[in-house]
Amino acid sequence: MAKTITQEFVKGLWDEIPPFRLVLGLCPTLAVTKSVENGLGMGVAVVFVLVCSNMLVSLLRNIIPSKVRIACFIIIIATFVIVVELVMQAYAYPLFLTLGIFIPLIVVNCIVLGRAEAFAYKNGVVRSIVDGFGMGIGFTISLTALGAVREVFGSGTFFGISVFGPSFQPFTFMIEAPGAFVCLGLMLCMMNLAGNK
C-alpha cells in the first residue's frame, strides 16, 4: 500500500514520531532538552542532517553496494554532521557550546542511520527527502515539547521568558538528569493514552 507524499510526511509527525513511537535517539532527547531553545536547535540540526543524508543515500542507492552500505551511510551522515558542526560554530556559537558533544553524536543517532537504512535506501529521492523532513520535524516537535515542559516547570521560563512570575519556586528536579528520564517516561505514557492505536 503506497503512501502519498503527504502521508509520508505526516507519519513522522504522529504515527511514527521519534523518539516517542520509535524509541530511538533518546540520548540527545534527554540531554539537550533543558530548555526549549536547546531542544529546537538540536531538532533543526537533526532535520538538516536527516534530509541531506536521506537525499544523498536515496540518490546513490543504486550505486552503493549492499555489503558496504552501512559504511557508506556512516560516511555520508558524518559528513553532514561535520557540516552542521562547523556552521553552528560559525553562526550559533553559544548553542554549539550548550549542545556540546551531542552535535557530533548525531552521527550515532539511531534515527538518522535508521531512516537511511529503512527508508532512503529503498525509496526515491523525493519520498526520502519528505520522509527525512517529516521525521526530523517530528523529532524537533518532540524535543521542543519536552524542552518546553522541562523549562517551564524546571526554571519557570519559556524561551527564557518568565512564565509564572517571580514568586514561582522552580521545580529544579525537572532540569536535572533524573527529571529528564521521568519526564520523558510520563510523556510517553501520555502519548500512549492519547493514541490508542
Binding site: 528520564f181 517516561g185 500512549n192
Partner: peptide, 22 residues
C-alpha cells in the same frame, strides 16, 4: 498500568536510578 508498560516505566525507573546516583 497499561499506558506505562515497558518503555515508559523503564524511563521513569531510569530517572530514579539517576536520582539515586546523586
Amino acid at each position: 498500568p497499561k499506558p506505562l508498560e515497558d518503555t515508559a516505566i523503564g524511563l521513569v525507573t531510569a530517572g530514579m536510578l539517576a536520582l539515586a546516583f546523586f
